[in-house]
Amino acid sequence: MGSKNEIVYIVDDDPIIRDALSSLLRASGKDVRLFGSGIEFLALKRDDIAACLILDLKMPGMNGLDVQKVISEQVSIPIIFITGRGDIPSTVKAMKGGAVDFLTKPVDETVLLAAVDQALQKDRLARLEALEHAELLSRYRSLTPREREVLPLLVKGMLNKQAAAELQITEYTVQIHRGKIMRKMKADSFAALVKMATNLSLEQSLAPSRDH
């Protein structure tokens, strides 16, 4: 079933195609928005909800691949390309650009509905992961500067005494920091903490640099 919290955008310069696709999707419970050109779609201030885009490949002016390129530089959205004729080079370029599917007109209704469901699911998961990452980053930013120094050393596998020597503090102080880090990061195990650090790429980008 469709959801009022999801939108399927359709961009096609042919009004007959737009209406046919819209009728099919609305009949399956989808919320649909129609556009006659890529420029018209790109000018839209999109709602902050899960969505996917059905995009015509061949359009006058800005074609589908042009639209895909602009979108890739902004907020991502799963794209399903449709075209009136097979075009292998364009298909390859579209898929390399991250397209979910590439369908040839006349589009099989069952195939299209399945592709839309897959695209919406992909966007739901991407949005969920983005929210989870933002929450994780918020937890990391709640750490003190010293705790941020201790954390990457621990997840590298250093013992408390090794981390203490590295930072020139006592082993007991490292133990205190470790407990606070676990609590602030909401990690129920050290393995969970390591996974969080990996997701944040702590060892590479967030680890504090040291001169010794």
Rank of each mutant, 00 (worst) to 15 (best):
residue 5 N to E: 13
residue 50 A to Y: 06
residue 80 I to L: 04
residue 118 Q to Y: 15
residue 18 R to Y: 09
residue 147 E to L: 01
residue 48 D to E: 09
residue 13 D to W: 10
residue 35 F to W: 04
residue 30 K to A: 01
residue 162 Q to D: 05
residue 111 V to S: 11
residue 65 L to N: 00
residue 128 L to D: 08
residue 92 V to S: 01
residue 71 I to G: 10
residue 137 L to G: 14
residue 150 V to S: 00
residue 150 V to M: 06
residue 19 D to H: 14
residue 33 R to H: 11
residue 158 M to E: 03
residue 125 L to S: 04
residue 139 R to L: 08
residue 202 L to G: 06
residue 34 L to Y: 10
residue 129 E to H: 09
residue 120 L to R: 09
residue 186 K to Y: 11
residue 181 I to C: 05
residue 20 A to S: 13
residue 154 L to F: 08
residue 50 A to C: 06
residue 94 A to V: 00
residue 161 K to N: 05
residue 132 E to F: 06
residue 206 L to H: 03
residue 161 K to R: 08
residue 57 L to Y: 01
residue 30 K to L: 05
residue 28 S to V: 02
residue 163 A to H: 07
residue 180 K to C: 11
residue 202 L to M: 10
residue 79 I to M: 05
residue 96 K to H: 09
residue 103 L to H: 05
residue 139 R to N: 10
residue 169 I to D: 08
residue 91 T to P: 02
residue 196 M to C: 09
residue 75 V to R: 09
residue 27 A to H: 13
residue 88 I to P: 09
residue 94 A to G: 03
residue 164 A to T: 00
residue 156 K to N: 10
residue 33 R to Q: 08
residue 44 L to F: 11
residue 136 L to S: 01
residue 25 L to G: 04
residue 115 A to G: 09
residue 71 I to W: 05
residue 54 I to T: 04
residue 133 H to R: 15
residue 154 L to R: 00
residue 189 S to N: 12
residue 58 K to F: 15
residue 124 R to M: 07
residue 134 A to T: 14
residue 8 V to L: 07
residue 209 S to V: 12
residue 108 D to G: 04
residue 161 K to E: 00
residue 134 A to L: 12
residue 46 R to K: 00
residue 208 P to H: 09
residue 12 D to F: 11
residue 194 V to M: 02
